[in-house]
Design a protein around this nucleic acid. Structure first.
Length: 412
DNA sequence: TAACACCCTGTTAT
DNA sequence: AATAACAGGGTGT
């Protein structure tokens, strides 16, 4: 296959602002591969993007196919017809966009540390964990695969999806790199049975049905793109307004989350992952079993017998973190999530340190969270029973009151 | 609202 | 060593 490989170029970035060795392995994207020692590669937007990082710079290189690709990339982006002349190469813009580099991460870490002792304790060993801005469609399917699953198997599954249905972009050391398949490709009737055979389990049906639904939504991926945060739009898209910030998130975020729930295999957690990592909604806080455990261990959420992760506790946890961390709560959440991953256990804070910290927090706050959870539960019930917007507004007020009570208690 | 099944795989417990 | 039990970034019924 004829290809054109760009030179390595560099972009000044500190490890405080971005650490690819952590960010690319913390379960946000399931497609990056080590192509050499300290080199990561992935097929994105019609090219293979390769990255290296040293303390001063992020080094990047792209490999473009010069023959036409079998099927178009998954988004109506500038990469649909990859430019092969250096002056038209948009790889730098892609890198900046993919890594959300306009956000000042160091500043955010300082802010989170100043309001949250637990964050302050754990974050230092996990600097540079940054929320990626991935393709919404790829994010959606990736996280449908993630349900009740391990990161390693999710990666295998996504890789198989690309291998069998995605366009071949090129090779590195004989290893093929495929871009992510389009909804239309995955909406073909034979896909479900094939994915089952490939070991996708019950997710084979979810993927097929979701592909059909998205493909039927109309013009390519406009529906998904329309759910993006307009202040942080998809690569190559236009901008707009995102709505006013509240502790349940901006209106655009809530709308996107709700619409995603209509898809098969998409519940609250997966919808939040797509909102955060694919649609640019920074306040989205996906609450999985892991985050729920963190909330119980470090933030005094109900440890009682019947304290499962219900719809009510889900919202209570997410709202609590939004109140604590602010508009980029999802980014902070990702730092603590990463700090708890087994893959990074060598960096964990010692148990003695953690225990000491937990005790400190407990002294300040005890009953408040339990109360918060109960209020949240009542509010959620209302939402389900009466779906009109007036009631939903009341729910928001109820949540906000709960939060205020909690903050008062914390100060007393 | 609370169970329970759902596909499969690597890890831990007998 | 072989096998059971269980959890792993949940969702649908």
């Amino acid at each position: 296959m004829a290809v054109r490989t760009t030179d390595w170029r560099k972009l000044p970035v500190t490890l405080t602002e971005l650490c690819i060795n952590t960010t690319l392995r913390c379960g946000q994207s399931f497609r990056w591969r080590k192509s050499a020692e300290d080199e990561w590669s992935c097929a994105i937007h019609g090219r293979i993007l390769s990255l290296r990082q040293d303390p001063e710079c992020l080094h990047y290189r792209a490999i473009f196919p010069t023959t036409s690709v079998p099927s178009p990339p998954p988004s109506t982006s500038p990469s649909a017809t990859p430019s092969i002349t250096p002056d038209k190469d948009d790889t730098l813009a892609l890198v900046k966009h993919y890594f959300n580099l306009s956000t000042n991460l160091g500043q955010l870490y300082e802010q989170w540390a100043s309001v949250d002792p637990n964050f302050k304790k754990r974050a230092p060993k996990f600097a540079g964990v940054r929320i990626l801005r991935q393709d919404p469609w790829e994010t959606l399917i990736g996280f449908i695969c993630s349900s009740n699953n391990h990161i390693s198997r999710i990666s295998t599954m996504v890789s198989n999806l690309c291998l069998h249905y995605g366009p071949l972009i090129g090779h590195i050391d004989g290893v093929p790199y495929h871009d992510f398949p389009t909804p239309e490709t995955l909406a073909k009737p034979e896909v479900e049975a094939h994915l089952s055979k490939l070991g996708f389990g019950y997710r084979a049906k979810y993927i097929y049905k979701t592909a059909v639904m998205v493909a039927e939504k109309g013009d390519g991926l406009d529906w998904l793109d329309g759910l993006c945060n307009p202040e942080s739009p998809a690569f190559g898209k236009d901008f707009g307004e995102a709505g006013e910030w509240t502790e349940t998130g901006r209106e655009g975020y809530r709308k996107a989350h709700q619409e995603l729930l209509a898809l098969h295999g998409v519940g609250p957690k997966v919808a939040d992952c797509v909102c955060l990592m694919g649609l640019g909604w920074s306040e989205s806080v996906p609450v999985d079993t892991h985050v729920w455990q963190i909330a119980q261990r470090d933030y005094r959420f109900g440890k009682g017998k019947n304290s499962g992760l219900t719809a009510a506790t889900y919202n209570a946890v997410a709202n609590h973190f939004r109140r604590l961390w602010g508009k980029e709560a999802g980014w902070a959440h990702s730092v603590l999530f990463t700090a708890d991953l087994k893959a990074f256990s060598e960096r964990l804070v010692s148990k003695a340190e953690v225990k000491e910290e937990a005790t400190k927090i407990k002294v300040e706050d005890d009953v408040a969270i339990a109360e918060n959870t109960i209020k949240g539960r009542k509010a959620t019930t209302k939402t389900i029973k009466r779906a009109d917007k007036e009631e939903e507004h009341n729910v928001l007020e109820a949540e906000e009151k709960t939060v205020r009570r909690r903050s008062k208690r914390l100060k007393t």
